[in-house]
Design a protein around this nucleic acid. Structure first.
Length: 295
DNA sequence: AGGTGTCAAGCGTCC
DNA sequence: GGACGCTTGACACCT
């Protein structure tokens, strides 16, 4: 079991997700921003290694505007060496990285333009992981998408669109249950039609489910992962006390996390913490797992 | 230098 | 039909 955090390290004074305004787009901005983001990413990974953190989500902003029509900057060639070095570091230390394009990525969109832009964005994500030379266990996770008033038709559209995706995207794509539209059972249906592994998100599940207990849900999602996909991925976050259901807490609730791991005992997976205080919670979670003999 | 309005992209909910 | 939440930082313009 690996435990990790997403995109930002609060202990470092750099960010690997720096961007700029579209209006400011230029080769100079691209050069400087991507170069800075990549060097920070390596710094983050080094920090992680020093702290025994082997799981990390890479920001989608690593290369700003990479899939936007405005982008004519050959970032793939220019930073080939940097990508390879980062990928080498990840592989050398048996780390796992993932990426999570945001809510604008909808491969089941009714609008063909939205669909096309989504595919382009997924190709960009796949290029990043490919340039790093990483195998298919390093995933790109998205949600199923919009419902558009017809859930079954929208799931079918996801399945047919999935089959037309470039192979480099298909081999990395995984779907995650969300908090309002597509629950775990829906994701399992998508998986049955496509073979995509399902990422289980505990907080989304608590807001949107069909009554499955956590252990049962974890086990069901786990069966969608093949050998080449690596261990099942789980997104974990704590409910903000007194907040709306689904609201993320600032820090990991270690008692809840311990209970979660206890309920999951015997199942193996990697845990991505979606918590605002980032690496601090990852370290706390690692301590809990270590205490339980799990990591 | 400091303050602040706004930022590529969309869905679903609520008024 | 339009604003807002999602989830958040930080860009970039203005004073």
């Amino acid at each position: 079991m690996k435990i990790g955090y997403a995109c930002i390290n609060l202990s470092l004074d750099c960010r690997s997700s720096r961007t700029f305004r579209l209006k400011s787009y230029s080769a100079e901005y691209m050069e400087r921003t991507v170069g800075g983001n990549l060097s920070c990413l390596l710094e983050q990974l080094r920090f992680n290694l020093e702290h025994d953190i082997y799981y990390f989500r890479i920001s989608s902003d690593l290369v700003p505007f990479a899939s936007h029509p405005v982008c004519d900057y050959p970032w793939q060639k220019r930073f080939k060496g940097e990508f390879a070095a980062i990928g080498g570091f990840i592989a050398e230390h048996a780390m796992r990285v993932t990426m999570h394009p945001d809510q604008f990525i909808l491969i089941n969109a009714l609008d063909e333009g939205i669909h096309a832009r989504s595919v382009a964005e997924l190709v960009y994500h796949a290029q990043v992981l490919d340039l790093m030379g990483l195998d298919a266990s390093h995933k790109i996770q998205i949600h199923v998408g919009g419902v558009y008033g017809d859930r079954e038709a929208s799931i079918s559209r996801f399945v047919s669109r999935y089959r037309k995706l470039p192979a480099k995207v298909r081999k990395r794509l995984v779907v995650e249950n969300d908090e309002r539209s597509y629950c775990l059972a829906d994701c399992l249906e998508v998986s049955a039609g496509t073979g995509v592994p399902v990422v289980f998100d505990n907080l989304h599940h608590s807001a949107n489910n069909r009554g499955e207990k956590v252990r049962e849900a974890l086990a069901a999602a786990g069966t969608t992962w093949e050998e080449r996909d690596g261990l099942p991925m789980v997104d974990y976050s704590s409910q903000k006390k007194g907040g709306k259901p689904g609201a993320h807490a600032y820090a990991l609730d270690t008692d809840d996390f311990r209970a979660f791991l206890e309920a999951a005992r015997g199942l193996d997976f990697d845990v991505m913490l979606e918590v605002k205080n980032k690496e601090h919670s990852a370290l706390a979670a690692l301590a809990v797992a270590a205490e339980m003999g799990l990591a």
